[in-house]
Amino acid sequence: MQDLKEQIIQQLNLQEVKPEDIGDDQPLFKEGLGLDSIDALELIVLLQQHHNIRIAKPEDGPNIFYSVRTMAEYITAEKAKQA
């Protein structure tokens, strides 16, 4: 999850945030890290560029991008399918 946090910081240009500032279960949007709708699109780009994963069902987005942990679990599950 450390690598994923670093990817999020780089992709979203969060220059004042360090990986250790992001809790594994902290909500990424709204009251948590405060990301917005453009950030959500950038997270989709991150999945494509870094993990070769395309989200098949856009309606799953809120659950996938709820926290770093839910993102990591989704990436692990999708890679297992690709293997």
Partner: peptide, 10 residues
């Protein structure tokens, strides 16, 4: 040319 950047587009 790769994946269009939403953050730049805005």
């Amino acid at each position: 040319h790769d994946i269009a950047s939403p953050a730049l587009f805005v």
